Simulated scan of single mutants.
Amino acid sequence: MHALIVWGGWDGHEPEKVAGLFRDMLEAAGGHVTLADTLDPFDDAEGLQRYDLIVPVWTDGVLSREAATNVSEAVARGTGLAGCHGGMCDAFRSSPLWQFMTGANWVAHPGGDGMNYRVRITSDDPLVTGIPDFDVVSEQYYLHVDPANRILATTRTDVVTWYHSPNGPVDMPVAWTRDWGLGRVYYNALGHQPDVIAEGPAREMLRRGLLWAAAGKAAAKGRDLTPMMTPGNHW
Rank of each mutant, 00 (worst) to 15 (best):
V57N: 10
N70C: 01
A3S: 11
P56Y: 11
V196E: 10
H13F: 01
S64N: 04
D224L: 12
A3R: 01
A36W: 08
W212D: 11
V185S: 04
R93C: 04
R77L: 13
V62A: 01
W7M: 02
R203S: 12
M205S: 04
V160W: 13
A175W: 01
G103Y: 13
P173Q: 00
P56I: 08
M88Q: 15
H13E: 01
W212C: 12
V33Y: 03
H32Y: 00
E27I: 05
P147L: 05
R77S: 14
T129C: 09
M205K: 05
D195V: 13
D125G: 03
R150G: 07
T157K: 07
D179C: 09
Y142N: 15
D24N: 09
A215I: 06
A82N: 12
A215Y: 07
R65Q: 10
W58Y: 14
A214H: 06
M1L: 11
L35E: 13
V196T: 14
I151C: 12
H109Y: 11
V170Q: 10
L35K: 11
R118D: 14
F92G: 04
A3M: 02
E204S: 06
M205C: 04
T38L: 06
G12P: 02
G47S: 13
P194L: 08
V119Q: 05
S64M: 03
T230D: 00
E16I: 09
M115P: 00
P169N: 09
G216N: 04
E199S: 15
A153W: 06
A74P: 01
I121F: 04
R208M: 11
V107C: 13
L225Q: 03
F134T: 11
V62N: 00
Q99G: 15
D146V: 06
D195L: 06
P166I: 00
D43T: 13
N167T: 03
M205N: 04
S138I: 10
R118C: 12
D146Q: 06
H2Q: 09
G87F: 05
G103A: 14
T122S: 15
R150F: 08
P169E: 10
D124T: 10
G78T: 03
N188H: 15
T155W: 08
D44G: 04
G168F: 03
G209N: 06
R120K: 15
G87P: 03
G114K: 11
V75M: 01
L21G: 02
V62Q: 02
N70A: 04
V170D: 03
L211F: 11
A45S: 15
H164M: 10
P147E: 09
P110E: 10
D195N: 12
M172D: 02
A218T: 14
W235I: 10
I197G: 02
Q49N: 14
L53T: 07
P15A: 10
V18R: 11
W58Q: 07
R118A: 14
G209S: 07
